[in-house]
Design a protein around this nucleic acid. Structure first.
Lengths: 168, 168
DNA sequence: ATGATATACTTAATCCTGTTGAATATCAAG
DNA sequence: CTTGATATTCAACAGGATTAAGTATATCAT
């Protein structure tokens, strides 16, 4: 599937593999999000992707978080986030409070109910993904993790550069 | 970042790394799609993610494709796809025709204009991603490609199984 | 203290896309 | 020519993205 013409030089191969990795990552992202979207749509969850990632972040930091930080962390605009949090609130998965000192800030926290739901979704997702990774050697898992961590780091660097570019 | 407690056994480590890979892939997918969404939103492109992936598939097969196949390939419902193709049509990136033998089928093809746009987007995406991969060793790129191909294959197997389950 | 400016967030309007179920058109068979 | 299956679209609604404008609170200069 990813074989190269043996007559091609090394540089061409590298260039091609480079583009192939991009392509495969794009495909995995698209397919993965679609599959996950369907999982989240099941009756027991009834969440959307933005709702899930928002709830996940609150679960991970396990503390109150102000709207603008939450928007940054989940890569959503503040305007969209308001609606997302509204819906999480209706489902009683989060709570909204005001910052005591600076009353402009709105703080959001997960409820126990929200934490439970995240745990259930993680389990379901784990089962779904298990069969996709099953065939990988344990050593390969380690390698994959190391490499993907580097890719993620690189992507976040791109983001920071774009952010600083705003006021350049 | 992904260190394990050395007192933990091998099995625990594997389990943990397994979950870590899931987590990192989810993060890369989410972050990647968000970044890409912003890129596609630029004036020169003005596409959405579903529009792009639909156009990309048509570009890749380089031939007419009927709606239901296009929906399968891009993991969208036929109903949503109708609207997506409508908008691609307005932008003159695709053309709709009827299958000559079976007039129920609607065939879609990319226009030259659509192919040009895909090429431009690929170049822009390449520049965006380049800095994320820059720090990876060429050997690592090879390894990453091999492993991600396996992951993608595994994910598609999950999909096929889910599909066959429909009429089980 | 007062008025200007900045910050944090919400609201409103519009578009895209997702879902479901019904509607339409076409084909294939009896 | 009905009957039933198939391919696609339509209609109605919800979520969420974007932009611009609006509200409330805070901060700072005078």
């Amino acid at each position: 599937m990813t074989q190269q013409d043996p007559q091609m030089g090394v540089e061409y191969n590298q260039q091609t593999n480079f583009e192939e990795v991009e392509r495969v990552i794009m495909q995995i992202s698209w397919l993965g999000q679609r599959q996950f979207m369907q999982l989240l749509d099941e009756e027991r969850f009834h969440l959307t992707l933005p709702q899930f990632y928002t709830l996940l972040h609150l679960h991970q930091i396990a503390d109150a978080c102000k709207m603008s930080d939450l928007a940054d962390a989940t890569h959503q605009s503040a305007a969209s986030l308001t609606g997302v949090v509204d819906r999480l609130l209706e489902k009683q998965l989060v709570e909204r409070t005001r910052h005591p000192r600076d009353r402009r800030q709105v703080m959001v926290v997960v409820t126990p109910r929200g934490n439970t739901l995240i745990a259930e979704i993680k389990r379901a997702r784990h089962e779904q993904m298990h069969s996709a990774f099953m065939h990988l050697h344990p050593d390969d898992i380690d390698t994959l993790l190391r490499l993907l961590d580097q890719v993620l780091l690189g992507m976040m660097r791109v983001l920071e550069r774009a952010d600083s570019g705003r006021w350049a």
